[in-house]
Structures are given as structure tokens and as C-alpha cells.
Nucleic acid binder design. Structure first.
Lengths: 225, 225
DNA sequence: ACCTGAACACCGTTCAAGT
DNA sequence: ACCTGAACACCGTTCAAGT
């Protein structure tokens, strides 16, 4: 559903009333609310309120709420940093995915959205192109490049989702302490979990993310020239 | 929020009215609705209706809707097949993750749920233990085992999410044909996407999934004895 | 202990009407 | 073309009350 076509005003027609809004303004405000209060709090009614308009006015600019979310997501993807042109392909890939991760962590609530409607919109298009280019520079053949692209994306999305599932802080720390107690007291049927309790309970972050990234790139590069 | 404690009846108390339901029945019915109509259609009101009860009666068995979703998810994870004890560790891992993938694809709507509340509940506990055991059998040291576990899970979840984002069929085929036309007509700034259009447009499935799985395992095993 | 009636505070979306 | 009033068809959750 809803293929993200913002439908820029095009209000040339005579008889037309001048628009009070633009789709860009709607997206910007939506993003602001999402960043401040979380995407869960983003409703058509709140968004309209913040824009000084009735809820149904939004349907002039976007066909439905999902289209707005798609646009916000692509706007966000636009913040992902492109690697400098002369970096090594491997480094380029890692830095792009790291940037993507950091950007997504900005709006954790949007992750379920990303996950089910990925890679639509102009900025996502750009990101994909850059990734594919780096993979080919790494001398991966066409098949491997596409598969590696898929794997890297799946991994990154999944990782960020897990990471964002619990926001860091006191509450998270207490939770992890509780889990640690639980794991440590496990019977022998759960020996591995019990033995690895210390490590399992560490909040995953940049080092863990990067390590997985390298493993995937290595795994694909290995089977190639 | 909501740590998945089904709170089994415990209706021993005198003066008590005999329960018409049990938490297991609630979960079973919820799963049925999810499988038939999609999780999007699963509301407290519909669920209550299907159980022949008013919506608020459900709060006797679960503190809120999320707790029900958690329980449904863990129930689902219970269907993941454990590998035969004597298989090679690598094969064991791949078959477990493949089974997990197939099970999740049964209830695509639940994937956004998995993604943000993973690995809670007894069945998830079992799955984690089995994965960790296989990884250690692969002579990965403790650190590598935990990181590989994380990477495999992130990858699988992300992959399934992408896969489930568009359900297969006529509609999907047409969409892919359209994307192919678009990619093929791209200007030189999008040379890689254009060149790889044929492959990018293929619906990912079991082979692609398995290939990525092997790449990750290889990537982690490489840096070890 | 278990369930209900009634209500609260919300949703997204549509549609006819106004300018 | 753009926006509004009013309504439709829903939500999850709470609370006092009944048995």
C-alpha cells in the first residue's frame, strides 16, 4: 500500500485556494513529534493540531498515515552519511551501515516501520546505490554483491531493532541485573546460557554491531577472488 | 512493560466463581485469529468476542494486550524444531534458524512484535540455549559465541521482516516488474542499481537466507581455532 | 475470583459542504 | 484546490458493581 508520492502542491489551478501547508512541512512536523515524544504518540490528530489544522486537512497532502510514515522514514535515511569517495570499500560499507544505525537509533519507534517497508523513497535509493557500488568495488561478483547487500541490510535492521527494544538507562540496567540473576541460577538443561550469563547480559552496542558487520563482509568476500 | 507472566488461574480460593477461560485458551484463540486474519485484526474486542466473553474479562488473565502478544509469540517459538542431537554444529544452527524463519513466516504480522520484544518466555529460552550450545560445539570461544548468536538472530529477524513485508503472489510479481522497469531506466548516478536490476528484483527466499547464514557463521568461525 | 455495563479518552478515515 | 464539521466505525483500558 501507499507508494510514497508526496504529491507536491501543483497549485497552479485558478479557483484554487492557496495552500496553508506543504507536504514538506507535514513531514518536518511529523519528524519533530516523533523525535520528541516517540512515533507511538504520532497521530493524525496530534499532527494536525501541531500544524494548526483539522485532521482531515492532512489528506490533501498524503493519502493516509502510512504514506506520512514512509516519507518521515525516507527523510531520516537522508541523514545517513555517504562515505568519502576514496575510502577502502570495506571501510566505506562499515561506516555507511554505522551511520544508518545511528540515524535509526534517533527514532527507535520508527524501526517497526522500517522493518516492514524498507527501501522506498529517493534517499533509500541513494543509500542502496552506494552500498552496491562499494560491494562491487570489493570485487564481489553480481550475485554475491546482491546477496551481501541483502544480508547486511537484514542484519543492520535486526540489530538496531534489538538494540532499541530497551532504551538504555537505570531501568534497563536493573532489568539486565535481574536477567543475570535468573540465568546464573539456571539448571543444567540451560548450561550454555548459564555459563555465558555474564556476556549475554551486556547491552549490545557499537563494538558488537561492527564485529557482526565485519563477519558478514568476510563471509561473503571469502568465497570470491 | 509486561513481562509475560500468564498467571495461571490458581483458582483454589473459596467464594471464587469458576473461570470460564484459561490463559492458554486465550493464547490459542489469539493465535488462531492471527493466523486466519493477520495480527493487525487482533483486537481485545474481537478476541473477547471469539471467546464468548466481554473485552474486559481478558484482563483477568493478562495485564494488557502486549502481554497477550508476548504469549502468542512464545507459543509460536515453541514450534521451532530442535536439531537432532548428533548433527554437525553448523548444520544444526542452519536448520534451527531455518525452522525459526518458517515459523515466523506463518504469522508475518507478528514480526514487528518479535523485533521489539525478542527472546522472552520459556520457549525462546530453550531456543537460545540450543543455539548457544551449537556455537560452543563449533569451538567458538565465549565472546565469539555470544556475538555470533546476536548476529544470527539480528540477521534472521531482519531477513524475515523484509521477506514478509510483501506477501508473495500476483500483486508482488507486478510490483517487482514495475521496480525492474524503474531500475533499468535509471541514469548513470545509479549505475550499480541499474546493472544489478535483474538480481535485485528477485524475491528473496530460502536460498538467499541460507547463503547469508553460512556467510555469518563462516565470518565468525574464521577468526577462531 | 471472575465477569459485566458503562464509560473514558482516544484512534484513522470519509463525505458533503464551504471558499 | 484546499480546508472544515460532523460522523462512522472502531480502539485499549478502567472502574464500580454483581455473583
Amino acid at each position: 500500500m501507499s507508494e510514497t508520492k508526496p504529491e507536491e502542491p501543483a497549485n497552479r489551478a485558478r479557483g484554487g485556494r492557496p495552500p496553508r501547508l506543504s507536504s514538506a512541512q507535514v513531514v518536518a512536523q511529523a519528524r519533530r513529534i516523533g523525535a520528541r515524544d516517540g512515533v507511538e504518540q504520532l497521530s493524525m490528530r496530534r499532527l494536525a493540531d501541531a500544524l494548526g489544522v483539522r485532521p482531515n486537512a492532512l489528506y490533501t497532502y498524503f493519502p493516509d498515515k502510512n504514506a506520512i510514515l514512509d516519507a518521515v522514514l525516507d527523510d531520516l535515511v537522508g541523514d545517513v552519511e555517504r562515505p568519502p569517495t576514496r575510502t577502502q570499500w570495506r571501510t566505506g560499507l562499515v561506516s555507511m551501515m554505522s551511520s544508518y544505525r545511528r540515524v535509526l537509533l534517533t527514532q527507535p519507534g520508527l524501526i517497526p516501520v522500517t522493518v516492514s517497508r524498507p527501501m522506498i523513497g529517493p534517499n533509500a535509493m541513494r543509500l542502496r546505490e552506494d552500498m552496491l557500488t562499494q560491494l562491487r568495488r570489493g570485487a564481489l561478483d553480481d550475485g554475491a554483491a546482491v546477496h551481501a547487500f541483502l544480508a547486511l541490510f537484514a542484519y543492520t535492521t535486526g540489530f538496531v531493532a534489538f538494540e532499541a527494544a530497551r532504551e538504555p538507562g537505570r531501568h534497563d540496567a536493573e532489568h539486565r541485573a535481574g536477567v543475570h540473576r535468573l540465568y546464573s541460577a539456571l539448571p543444567d538443561e540451560f548450561a550454555s546460557t548459564r555459563d555465558l550469563a555474564d556476556r549475554l547480559v551486556v547491552r549490545p552496542g557499537d563494538p558488537e554491531f561492527t564485529r557482526g558487520l565485519h563477519a558478514i563482509i568476510d563471509g561473503f568476500a571469502r568465497a570470491n577472488p
